[in-house]
């Protein structure tokens, strides 16, 4: 379905010393530097998979998605999606994929969203009644029936994103590249988009490759994650493996019945107070028993829980471990 081997993309960008003087210098003699946006990345994705693409800003996630969708020509390496080489941008390929970019919109700003759908219908050569069925299905799933006849500029950010999804899925693509589809949305709207993507994958069996800043998106949607940072692939596998391998710490969380005395706190030296009045010890898995014992002995416990660390922490640690190698 998707096969990527040794994928590499280098950009050459002008380098400029700071300030006006630097600008003048760069006008006269321009120096270039090569930015290695993506470096020797390989993976394969099977039909119907939902894969999360994780990495810090500038890691090369978007560049990879752009190469997969045919917008950029790779510097080196091979890409094959649905049996096509994406950069050929053949109509037979483009009509089977879609790319949604959370930060760029294709809706016609001054017209109702319905008109963008009609335009895309014509450009993708979808039959009228088929398009109507798809739009009906999508608008029902996304609960936006009432919004289709309002000019796009009068819609909220979340409503616009829903309409973007309809415009992008009208031709029922087999592969969905979603680049930060939830960016800037409030929590409730993030959940709506997330549920929608999952449901659409279930209904159509489409393959989904998703990048997001929000770990909750990835955790909820993607059984498999690919982590890249500084253009290189760092991890590829099930989300649990990532957490297990890099998140061996546990959090022991105590909710006290009353404010602990200084003496009690001194005895429970593994614990630290958090802003919401709880006491938390972050310890290696092997030390969980010791931490719990200490809490039971020293603290006025109302509730006690042992948690896995948040995904954010795991990822942050993964990047911190590997950054020097980059």
């Amino acid at each position: 379905m998707i096969r990527v081997a040794g994928l590499t993309k280098h950009y050459r960008t002008p380098k400029k010393a700071p300030g006006l003087l630097g600008s003048i210098k760069s006008l006269v003699r321009r120096e270039y530097e090569t930015v290695k946006a993506v470096e020797d990345v390989s993976f394969t994705i099977a039909p119907g998979e939902r894969v999360g693409f994780l990495g810090p800003n500038g890691a090369g996630k978007t560049t990879t998605l752009k190469m997969l969708s045919g917008l950029l020509v790779p510097t080196a390496g091979e890409v094959e999606v649905l049996g096509h080489r994406p950069s050929d941008r053949l109509p037979g390929y483009l009509s089977r994929i879609t790319l949604v970019m959370g930060q760029k919109q294709q809706l016609l700003w001054d017209l109702p969203a319905r008109e963008t759908f009609e335009l895309n219908r014509a450009l993708f050569g979808v039959a009228r009644d088929e398009a109507r069925r798809t739009v009906d299905e999508l608008t029902e799933l996304l609960e936006l029936k009432a919004l289709l006849d309002r000019p796009v500029r009068n819609l909220s950010l979340g409503e616009r994103m829903k309409c973007e999804l309809v415009a992008a899925l009208l031709h029922r693509p087999e592969v969905l590249f979603l680049d930060e589809p939830t960016i800037g949305l409030d929590v409730r709207m993030q959940v709506v988009v997330r549920r929608f993507v999952e449901e659409w994958n279930r209904r159509t069996g489409a393959t989904i490759l998703l990048t997001s800043h929000y770990m909750a998106d990835i955790a909820a949607l993607c059984p498999r994650v690919i982590v890249i940072s500084a253009g290189r692939l760092r991890f590829d596998g099930p989300l649990q493996d990532l957490v297990r391998r890099h998140g061996t710490d546990r959090r022991v969380v105590v909710a006290p019945v009353r404010e602990p005395t200084p003496e009690e706190l001194a005895l429970a030296d593994r614990f630290q107070r958090t802003d919401d009045g709880k006491l938390v010890a972050t310890v290696p898995a092997a030390d969980v028993k010791a931490a719990v014992d200490q809490a039971l002995r020293a603290l006025p416990i109302q509730d006690l829980a042992v948690e896995e660390p948040p995904l954010e922490d795991v990822i942050a640690r993964l990047f911190a471990e590997q950054e020097p190698a980059a």
């Binding site: 969708s69 917008l71 109509p91 483009l94 009509s95 450009l123």
Partner: peptide, 18 residues
């Protein structure tokens, strides 16, 4: 300039014509 040319490139119609 604003990057939405990407969406034009993604349409299955000859880009020069489009």
């Amino acid at each position: 300039r604003d990057g939405t040319f990407d969406y034009t490139l993604l349409k299955p119609i000859d880009t020069q014509l489009l």
